[in-house]
Amino acid sequence: MFAVYAAEQQYRHDTWTRRRDHALLASIRERQGAQAMSAVAAPAAAPLPRAPWARPIGRRSEAATPAACAIA
């Protein structure tokens, strides 16, 4: 009787694990499909323009000039 009980428990565990794995794979496929659709629908935004020089720490961007950067 113990062998039958153990076999039933193993079957239930395998069935539960298989269903969980299938659900996980389905959600991964669904998410990848949604990401692919959103990537096609909305083109990537252009990167923001960068300043030709680095802004010194503690300075505001309008106060930073090439001369100020050289001094700092």
Rank of each mutant, 00 (worst) to 15 (best):
16 W>T: 13
53 W>A: 05
34 A>Q: 14
47 P>L: 12
23 A>D: 12
63 A>C: 03
35 Q>D: 10
40 V>M: 09
24 L>C: 08
8 E>T: 13
29 R>G: 09
57 I>W: 07
68 A>I: 11
56 P>R: 00
29 R>T: 10
60 R>Q: 03
12 R>A: 15
4 V>P: 00
61 S>D: 05
32 Q>W: 04
25 L>T: 05
46 A>L: 12
37 M>W: 08
27 S>T: 08
13 H>D: 08
2 F>Q: 11
39 A>E: 08
11 Y>S: 09
72 A>I: 03
24 L>Q: 07
2 F>N: 11
39 A>M: 09
27 S>R: 14
32 Q>T: 05
1 M>G: 11
13 H>F: 15
32 Q>K: 10
19 R>P: 00
52 P>Q: 04
20 R>V: 07
26 A>Q: 10
63 A>I: 02
61 S>N: 06
51 A>E: 04
71 I>V: 13
14 D>G: 05
1 M>F: 06
9 Q>W: 03
29 R>C: 08
41 A>Q: 09
10 Q>W: 06
27 S>Y: 05
25 L>W: 02
14 D>V: 05
42 A>N: 14
64 A>K: 01
10 Q>K: 15
60 R>W: 04
21 D>Q: 15
10 Q>L: 15
8 E>L: 15
59 R>T: 10
62 E>D: 07
28 I>T: 01
48 L>G: 03
62 E>S: 05
28 I>W: 00
61 S>E: 07
14 D>N: 14
11 Y>W: 04
4 V>Y: 07
18 R>P: 00
42 A>M: 12
45 A>P: 12
54 A>T: 07
57 I>D: 10
6 A>N: 07
29 R>V: 08
24 L>T: 09
64 A>T: 08
25 L>D: 03
65 T>Q: 01
